[in-house]
Write a protein that binds this DNA or RNA. Structure first.
Length: 275
DNA sequence: ACCTACCTGGCC
DNA sequence: GGCCAGGTAGGT
């Protein structure tokens, strides 16, 4: 489900529901999803903890715990959902974690493919244990300037799309928004980063920001199973230009979109609009 | 910088 | 049955 815009939507939905809430009981139904610490310590560490707020770094959801340096971290993988439910609502099919809250409701994690993961620990601790990776800069917000991006991408020597998918280069893009950003920038995903002209790098930087901000405004892309923290689908899938449209006509010029395999992922682009 | 594995499930 | 799917990690 989740790239930056989807995670951002979930985080902004969860924040008012979880900030200040206390975790009462924790039921871990699929211990394999806990990467750190041991499942028993993970459960013990969450019980009784109070959530300060909910935020995001790349595709990771961060919930710092009050009066402690520790944070509860969730990655949604491909099909994860983190949602607050009424205690009596029936469980979703693949529910793997249940945490009762002090307001009578329940935080639940469900994940059909089980690619998500949970962490609990201080920032340094998680990095030292190598369970939280070094992430590149956030592509939106004020932290990354166009100049920074220019310098960053010029140093790489790889296809543009592989760079965009690499979380240690830029944090938050996945298969949908990498393809959409390349289209919006008029660049073929196969172009090599170190061969881009200054204006092409500029266009790419602008395209990444525009594509992500538009999707956040639409509350994310619900291509398959993604729904927000209230169970509601996003609308951005209606505006996607290339993702999932291989073989169909380009919405801008009518040329059939090409599909190929790049960096292990299905990639779609317009041979006419993208050079 | 690539491949493959990790899972379940939908579609052909 | 085989292939595909928004994710990353671990080993070439």
């Amino acid at each position: 489900m989740p790239e930056l815009p989807e995670v951002e939507t979930v985080v902004s939905d969860l924040r008012p529901q979880l900030a200040g809430r206390r975790f009462e009981t924790v039921s871990l139904l699929l211990p394999r999803l806990v990467r750190y610490p041991e499942p028993a310590a993970f459960v013990a560490g969450l019980m009784g903890a109070r959530v300060e707020t909910v935020s995001r770094r790349g595709k990771y959801i961060l919930a710092p715990l009050a009066g402690s340096a520790k944070r509860f971290v969730v990655h949604l993988g491909m099909t994860g959902h983190l949602r607050v439910w009424g205690r009596d609502e029936p469980l979703a099919r693949h529910t793997h974690l249940r945490i009762t809250l002090d307001d009578g409701r329940e935080l639940r994690y469900d994940d059909q493919r089980q690619f998500g993961r949970f962490l609990l620990g201080a920032e340094d601790e998680l990095r030292t244990a190598r369970v939280f990776p070094r992430l590149g800069p956030e592509p939106i917000g004020d932290s990354l300037t166009e100049g920074d991006f220019q310098a960053l991408i010029r140093r790489r020597r790889r296809p543009v799309k592989s760079a965009l998918l690499d979380q240690s280069f830029l944090a938050g893009l996945g298969n949908i928004y990498s393809d959409e950003a390349c289209f919006a920038a008029g660049l073929r995903p196969t172009r090599m980063t170190h061969r881009l002209a200054v204006r092409e790098r500029q266009a790419l930087f602008g395209a990444i920001g525009a594509v992500l901000r538009a999707s956040i405004a639409h509350r994310g892309s619900s291509v398959a199973s993604y729904v927000d923290a209230f169970g509601v689908a996003g609308r951005n899938q209606e505006t996607l230009q290339v993702y999932g449209r291989g073989g169909r006509p380009c919405l801008r010029c009518g040329t059939p979109l090409k599909r190929l395999r790049l960096a292990g992922r299905t990639t779609v682009y317009c041979p006419q609009c993208q050079r």
